[in-house]
Nucleic acid binder design. Sequence first.
DNA 1: AACGTTCCCGTGAGCGTTCACGGAGCACTG
DNA 2: CAGTGCTCCGTGAACGCTCACGGGAACGTT
Lengths: 334, 334
Amino acid sequence: MPMSARPRRITIEDVARSAGVSRQTVSRAVNDKPEIDPATRQRVLRVAESMGYRPSRFARGMVGPHLTTLGLVIADVLNPFFPEVVSGVLAAADERGWQVAIYSTGSALERETAVARTVVDHVDACVAFLLDPGAIELIHRSGMPFVLLDNEHRPPAVSGGRIDFATGMRHAVGHLVERGHRRIAMLDDRGRPDAGGHGTRHSLFLGAAAELGLPADEEWVFPAANSLEGGAAAMDDVLAGGFGATAVLGYNDLIAIGAMRRARDRGMRVPQDCAFVGCDGLTLSRLVDPPLTTLTVDKELLGRAAVRQVAAQMTGAGTGETVIVPRLVVRESS
Amino acid sequence: MPMSARPRRITIEDVARSAGVSRQTVSRAVNDKPEIDPATRQRVLRVAESMGYRPSRFARGMVGPHLTTLGLVIADVLNPFFPEVVSGVLAAADERGWQVAIYSTGSALERETAVARTVVDHVDACVAFLLDPGAIELIHRSGMPFVLLDNEHRPPAVSGGRIDFATGMRHAVGHLVERGHRRIAMLDDRGRPDAGGHGTRHSLFLGAAAELGLPADEEWVFPAANSLEGGAAAMDDVLAGGFGATAVLGYNDLIAIGAMRRARDRGMRVPQDCAFVGCDGLTLSRLVDPPLTTLTVDKELLGRAAVRQVAAQMTGAGTGETVIVPRLVVRESS
DNA sequence: AACGTTCCCGTGAGCGTTCACGGAGCACTG
DNA sequence: CAGTGCTCCGTGAACGCTCACGGGAACGTT
């Protein structure tokens, strides 16, 4: 009994033969071209459908104008920071008739290289949140238009979009000081490989604190996993350490909210016993109780700007940088 | 002065000529094939890089094994329901080595046809949240593997994934009745084109209410826009109507949370003065105050199952249906 | 000295589609 | 009746790449 050979794809040629016409006529029928008899078109379309014919994207792309696919690399769709960026990217890409392929590293540093490798030969341009220098280099060297987001250690040769947390941190810490706080703890994201490095929120926090004459040693910074649970656990550390902190600033809203909830579970009143400030300005921050004071960044704009930069690179523009300045939104948690 | 012609793409041939070798050798260098002298490889790679050579995805796809791209059509990334589904789809696609392209309709019914049209000739398979019958037909007729999610009016010929809200609604309403509620309002999503149709949460709610001997007229159902604001506005309608509702059931968590917040802003105590129940089980529902009782559905699983069905169709399996049964998570809002 | 191996490299063919052309058939004009 | 136009259809060629094959050079083996 003969094995049925690997089901060879059915081509336009097959349809043509079966319908008793030429390739070109099938092409005309499928693509709604005018130079064809309506009757033949119907017949051909019927045959094509019955045979289950589907034109090959690749063969089409070969000849026609290249459809550009933008690769968007994020850490994790479940992290509410990213959907807003994605939204901006999708909108901006759509305006240009681009397609967007999404890749997620799952917040795992060691997966970044693998993701970068696939990205490199599956898309035409790339917007990415990436931390591993190897992965970044990989994409950059591929020569495709590339914008790297939210990475303080961006190589100068690659375009980027960053958030001006230097200014932001001054606002945030300044606000707490105005409210009378002198003992402020920060909950840092311990997942970042460059903890405490130049330009990180960690060091910017310490800088702002020092400027304002606050105790600003490393011991006021607590590492936290980037999640609600991480924030909660870090809050336990703060309380256990006996620092007498009256305010807590989170690396982001997720961590801040986790910490805030844990504080309330421990019977503390917010903001009377302890004030909380987050970063990012997630929609979420408005909805928790009490609503969280947060350094809001326009994430949708970040996405749009990134696409704009990628588009610029396609038309031969050089590398650039977009800076987004966060805005402090004061709510009831501080 | 001669216009510079449209910048023709530089091909493997160009690199070959410029490096003084053949296409094949360039191909070997670029693809890390073994049969090449390390020295030549280096030289070729250098030339390729200096010329800015990038292999064409399409030409590669023509010859090699076809990389499959899965199209995922959602309404809006900013709606927190979807990221969880996306997460499941990404994971399941990744396991199969597929790429995922995301398309968003922006919750606009009239955009669905346009999106469907692009999807049809840009991807190899499709998982979609779609409502417009025309758009659905378009994708289905294209012959590609297709799974339609969360649509009560799915044509029998197309595969689907649905959530068993018939069971869910019985649980939800039953729970409220146990708590002593007899006057329950529902806040429906007015954006759905089939409001009140068979199998919708709207009609399932009325059915469950009737089963339990509750007032279950249409007047207990209030249309709401699918957002926090929509829920809030609908809550105003409930209060203004003088129905004396002691419990409110939202089409989804977003609407329920919006309504709940509005009720509290109006000075009502939750759940004493009015209880609230949502649908979907968003992460968000845990975080609001008070934490929301909600009909939780495993959205990640929904995504994974959809991909599994698409994969099955690729290997020639027929059309099928996945059913996900929601689970009532009781929290402090009821 | 003839032969086999190994290493490196080049040449034809083919992937499935569309574009640019050309040609057959027919009707309508002057 | 020749000429002109229109409608419909088919035939190379090209897109950029990889695969299968074959060939030359250098080396070792019998």
